[in-house]
């Protein structure tokens, strides 16, 4: 694929911006969590684009892929804990809207 790495970065920033928009705009906690996953994926893409940029012909740069492996693991962990919290919230409030949990009034 002969696409310049800039375009991977552009795609990454666009995906991240959409993730931020979803995080701010939606009230459903599950969709909020999905927006976070989207942002983590955009970060992964940026890591890989950077790694591609710094790879020499016979010597691939491995830090990007290694970090992506760690980020994927953390994203899975975050999803598991987040969904458990959503289940706990639903048990308490019978709702998964963020407005239903406003006791602390931050």
């Amino acid at each position: 694929m002969n696409v310049p790495s800039e375009h991977l970065f552009f795609l990454s920033s666009a995906l991240f911006a959409l993730g931020v928009l979803g995080f701010l705009v939606r009230r459903n906690v599950i969709v909020t969590l999905m927006s976070i996953e989207l942002m983590l994926n955009a970060a992964n893409l940026a890591f890989l684009a950077g790694s591609r940029l710094h790879s020499a012909p016979g010597r691939p740069d491995l830090q990007g892929p290694l970090f992506v492996i760690f980020v994927i693991t953390v994203a899975a962990v975050e999803a598991a804990v987040g969904l458990a919290l959503i289940i706990a919230l639903y048990r308490l409030k019978q709702s998964v809207e963020t407005d239903s949990a406003s006791e602390m009034k931050g």
């Binding site: 694929m1 994926n41 492996i69 994203a75 999803a79 598991a80 969904l83 959503i86």
Partner: peptide, 30 residues
């Protein structure tokens, strides 16, 4: 396409196979 073969597989296995199924599971459970 960008040359990351293992991570493409990991992306499908972990995200599509595990994380999104977890999301679907919770949506259906609740």
């Amino acid at each position: 396409l960008a040359g990351f073969q293992f991570l493409a597989a990991a992306q499908i296995l972990v995200y599509a196979g595990a994380v999104l199924v977890l999301f679907l599971f919770v949506i259906m459970l609740l």
